[in-house]
Amino acid sequence: MELYQLRTFVAVAQQGHLTQAAELLHLSQPAVTAQIKALEEELGVALFERYPGGVQLTEAAKDILPEAERILALSRGMQHKAKALSGEPKGKVKIGTIGVPARLKLGPWLACLRSRYPLLTVQTTHGISGGILNEVRKKTLDGGFYLGRNPYQNVNNLPLTEIGFCVALPPQLAPQLAGDDWDSLAKVPWLGLSQFNSLSSITQELWRAQNVAPRKFGEFDEEATLLELVKAGLGVAILAERTAKRFAADGSIVLWRGGDCVTSAPLQFVYSAERENDPLVTMLRDTLLEVWQPSE
């Protein structure tokens, strides 16, 4: 059966007259009669009884009418929804992520974005801060998360929060640091970092501020890797405060000075400066602030 047949059936039922229903539907009476007959043949039941003043529903039609009205209502609802969506922003947005998704509030943010703009498709690319920043500069990403201070004028920042860092020690190295000073800390091996990892610049700034130059072991690019290597006893590293304290609680690492934060860095959302007024970037910024501001 077709929707137009159901629409004609409902119109005739409401008007109680073929001619009046035809006028309402802008059809000829023979066309209305033909549609009702076709529907009756498909359903296998008579829908109307004719009498001199018009038509009335059969008992079978009285049972069918509510279903026909419901189907037409669903059809109208779908049309209204489609019209509303036709003006919605659409397309794919590419976002660079770093570190732990929970730290970025990635789930709540993307849920908010999905709720506000249902036709947007999101693609995430996980990397390290320097790599994400470069991809944003090259405009291969619409935006991304970056930990640290952005050195580029052609990339704009949306500050989200400040991340504190603790010095994480292997348990077996902790006894060597009884002096509890930076000179003592500089005598134990530190885990080296890739130049693209924002922790590298944060660590270098910290060493310069404390006037120390520790011996480095290896070169690594992920916080999760640093954590595993600290636990394995290979060296010292700075870790985000929440991560450091979570693993210190089970004794797998030890925090220098009881977990005092030795430095901090801003967590930011970065995007091309040329896209400051881009509607898509505005959507990303607005929903990020909606998720971050209430608790920050």
Results as ranks from 00 to 15, higher is better:
Ala34Thr: 12
Leu25Tyr: 02
Glu41Thr: 13
Val45Pro: 00
His26Asn: 11
Lys62Pro: 00
Gly44Trp: 11
Ala60Asp: 13
Lys37Leu: 14
Gln29Lys: 14
Leu24Gly: 03
Ala13Ile: 02
Ala21Met: 10
Arg50Phe: 13
Gln20Thr: 07
Glu41Gly: 07
His17Gln: 12
Tyr51Glu: 13
Leu6Val: 03
Pro30Thr: 10
Gly16Tyr: 05
Ala38Pro: 01
Leu47Arg: 10
Gly44Leu: 02
Ala60Lys: 10
Gln35Gly: 06
Glu42Met: 06
Phe48Trp: 10
Thr58Arg: 08
Leu57Tyr: 13
Gly54Arg: 11
Glu59Gly: 03
Val10Pro: 06
Thr8Tyr: 05
Leu57His: 04
Gln5Lys: 06
Thr58Val: 01
Glu49Ala: 13
Pro30Ser: 09
Thr58Trp: 09
Glu23Trp: 12
Glu59Tyr: 04
Ser28Gln: 12
Pro52Arg: 14
Glu41Arg: 15
Glu41Met: 14
Ile36Lys: 02
Leu24Glu: 05
Gly44Ser: 06
Ala11Lys: 01
Gln35Asn: 11
Phe9Asn: 00
Leu24Trp: 08
Gln15Gly: 06
Thr58Leu: 08
Ala61Tyr: 02
Ala31Asp: 07
Ala31Val: 09
Thr33Ser: 13
Gln5Leu: 09
Gln14Tyr: 06
Ile36Arg: 04
Leu39Val: 02
Pro66Gly: 08
Leu25Glu: 04
Glu40Gln: 15
Leu6His: 01
Pro52Asn: 08
Ile64Pro: 03
Gln29Cys: 05
Gly16Phe: 01
Ala11Glu: 10
Ala46Trp: 09
Glu40Lys: 10
Glu40Ser: 02
Thr33Asn: 09
Leu39Trp: 01
Glu59Cys: 02
Thr58Gly: 10
Gln56Pro: 00
Leu57Ser: 07
Asp63Trp: 04
Thr33Lys: 11
Tyr4Pro: 00
Ala61Ile: 02
Arg50Glu: 07
Glu41Leu: 09
Val32Phe: 10
Leu57Ala: 01
Lys37Pro: 03
Leu24Thr: 10
His26Lys: 13
Pro66Leu: 05
Val45Asn: 00
Leu57Pro: 04
Leu18Ala: 04
Ala34Lys: 08
Ala21Pro: 00
Ile64Val: 10
Glu42Trp: 07
Leu24Met: 11
His26Gln: 11
Val10Gly: 04
Ala22Leu: 02
Gln5Ala: 09
Gln15Phe: 09
Pro66Asn: 09
Ala31Tyr: 00
Gln15Ser: 15
Ala13Cys: 11
Gln5His: 14
Lys62Phe: 00
Glu41Ala: 14
Glu41Ser: 12
Ala61Ser: 06
Ala61Phe: 06
Ile36Ala: 08
Val45Leu: 14
Glu59Gln: 15
Phe48His: 07
Val55Asn: 09
Thr33Glu: 10
Ala60Gln: 14
Pro30Leu: 03
Tyr51Val: 08
Leu6Ser: 03
Ala38Tyr: 03
Ala60Met: 07
Arg7His: 07
Leu43Asp: 03
Ala60Arg: 12
Val55Asp: 11
Leu27Ser: 02
Glu40Ala: 15
Gln20Ser: 15
Glu49Leu: 12
Ala22Met: 08
Lys62Asn: 06
Val32His: 01
